[in-house]
Write a protein that binds this DNA or RNA. Structure first.
Length: 490
RNA sequence: CGGGGUGUAGCGCAGCCCGGUUAGCGCACCUGCUUUGGGAGCAGGGGGUCCCAAGUUCGAAUCUUGGUACCCCGACCA
């Protein structure tokens, strides 16, 4: 049992907070709801960003950057968009400070009031579509496939590190197309990119689905999502992709001349994932000893802990390990020789476990003499003694195995916590247990609203690969042709 | 915005009810020595506007009033 970390069963929220803080991923800041992402946490984000960025480029997208500040009037051009975001916008009203009369503090200069107030972007559809208007005249200008890496601000009532912060980092793709089907195809393609990323890099199994009308993005015709299950059985939306129809094109009057010489509004998509993924990563895999990170995203994949009496032994061990480190680095594996002599080996073992380093090697003089090395894997905590010669190949395979194992483990957990429910009575009982519920729904927002009110569970998604089967709504008893996923969510 | 709670060293807390030496404990930190195969031991040391302001008093971390910040529960939330 790790020191100073709450256990998952006793206090899941505290356990999560402990891992974020004690694992060195992030810190609270002096601004309410905002966090400091520390180097170790940021390194995970960099790995996520690099992998996703490559996938975006490989699917034909380019990066650009649009302003942080958006004229207030832009937000109100799309009716449902403003409804969705108005309540959580930070607003810039002045552009200058000055010294107070007594000279002791700085105050907002009342003479420096902005003509038009600016909002800090909660998302960038409006400012981007205002630009697209100038960029698009003809079908030859389409499609536009742009992504931006940025920060956004949403003034949330209640925040949690990584999962819901007032400011967060994300990417937002904004594409413009000549036809609806092309925009829908783009929306689906990017959902697929997210699902692939989640499963292959994060080792996080996800359900691809569509949102119900209630849960749809403000301004979208359709919202697609990937939903993941955390270890407490709650759902977490890990990524979204929206088919925006012509809503923003109409709001910003973006028309193009098609091949037939007719003016037509442009079709759009937008899609994003955020630093919330780091929260998902933590809650999906970690245990009571600390973080468990998938090798593909771990800032450090292999750590070597030497066990030495005195400098001379330390030097011997380092010289023995150096060729191995070169060999690992040549394979693209990150490795560190932890020769900090102010900490003892036992402390280091616990520390690297807390930080989720996938593979730990330990070597003392006994191993040195015997030509062996102790290899410990973080995911199962199994230790074994391996011949030192050829251990690089063993480690390379082990990393792959760990990546696969934590995915399998998460998938087995999820699959065993999805329950089919066919009666309201059973629904009320089952929703109290961790996990997802698969049940028939009559398709009305009223029913969904009522269920949410009574149970706090929402429709997470209508799975894309859903089996079509006739049934009756678990709440209203009306006919339904497919099951949807209900859960309590982050 | 409603209900509850908490602000004392970097972190976690005691002291407050019942005012009175130099504000204390654990962890962390620094120095030295001994240690090193699962969170080391001993010795020495540094660090405080006791959230802020006003008041009561010979005297306030402690009592009174006002303010403020944060946390939890609710409301809210892609």
């Amino acid at each position: 049992m790790a020191k100073d970390i709450a256990s998952r069963v006793n206090d899941y929220s505290q356990w999560y907070n402990d891992l974020v803080i004690k694992g060195g991923l992030a810190d609270y800041s002096s601004v309410r709801g905002c966090m400091v992402i520390k180097p170790y946490g940021y390194a995970i984000w960099e790995h996520m960003r690099d992998a996703l960025d490559k996938m975006f480029k490989d699917t034909g997208h380019v990066n650009a950057y649009f302003p942080l500040l958006i004229p207030k009037s832009f937000l109100s051009k799309e009716a449902s968009h403003v409804d969705g975001f108005a309540k959580e916008c930070a607003v810039v009203t002045h552009y200058r400070l000055k010294n107070s009369a007594d000279g002791k503090s700085v105050i907002v200069d009342p003479d420096a009031k902005l003509e038009e107030e600016l909002i800090i972007r909660p998302t960038s559809e409006t400012i981007i579509w205002n630009s697209y208007k100038n960029w698009i005249q003809s079908y030859r200008d389409l499609p536009i496939l742009i992504n931006q890496w940025a920060n956004v601000v949403r003034w949330e009532m209640r925040t949690r590190l990584f999962l819901r912060t007032a400011e967060f980092l994300w990417q937002e793709g904004h594409t413009a197309h000549a036809t609806a089907s092309e925009a829908i195809a783009e929306t689906e393609k990017m959902l697929d990119v997210y699902a692939t990323f989640a499963e292959e890099f994060m080792a996080l199994p996800v359900i691809r689905g569509k949102k119900s009308a209630n849960e749809r993005f403000a301004g979208a015709l359709d919202t697609y999502c990937i939903e993941a299950m955390m270890q407490d059985g709650q759902a977490l939306q890990a990524g979204t992709s929206h088919f925006l129809g012509q809503n923003f094109a109409k709001a910003f009057d973006v028309q193009f001349l098609n091949k037939e010489g007719k003016q037509e509004y442009v079709w759009a998509s937008s899609w994003g994932v955020s630093t919330r993924l780091i929260g998902a990563l933590i809650m999906a895999h970690s245990d009571d000893d600390g973080l468990v990170l998938p090798p593909k995203l771990a800032p450090l994949q292999v750590v070597i802990v030497p066990i030495a009496k005195g400098e001379e032994e330390m030097k011997k061990l380092f010289e023995k390990c150096e060729p191995l480190m070169q060999e690992l680095k040549a394979k693209g594996i990150s490795v560190k020789f932890d020769d900090d002599d102010t900490k003892r080996p036992g402390f280091k073992f616990a520390e690297h476990e807390l930080k989720g380093v996938p593979v730990r090697l330990a070597m003392g003089m006994r191993d040195y003499e015997a030509g062996t090395v102790e290899v410990a894997r973080r995911d199962t905590k199994e230790k074994s003694s391996q011949p030192f010669n050829g251990v690089a190949g063993y480690i390379e395979n082990l990393l792959k195995e760990i990546q696969q194992n934590i995915f399998n483990k998460a998938k087995a957990f999820r699959d065993s916590h999805i329950r089919q429910v066919n009666s309201w009575e059973d629904f009320l009982k089952q929703i109290e247990a961790p996990g997802f519920i698969s049940a028939h729904w009559d398709g009305t927002p009223e029913t969904e609203e009522k269920i949410k009110e009574l149970t706090k569970a929402t429709i997470r998604c209508i799975p894309l690969d859903n089996k079509q089967e006739n049934g009756t709504c678990v709440f209203s008893g009306k006919p339904s042709k497919e099951r949807v996923i209900f859960a309590r969510a982050y």
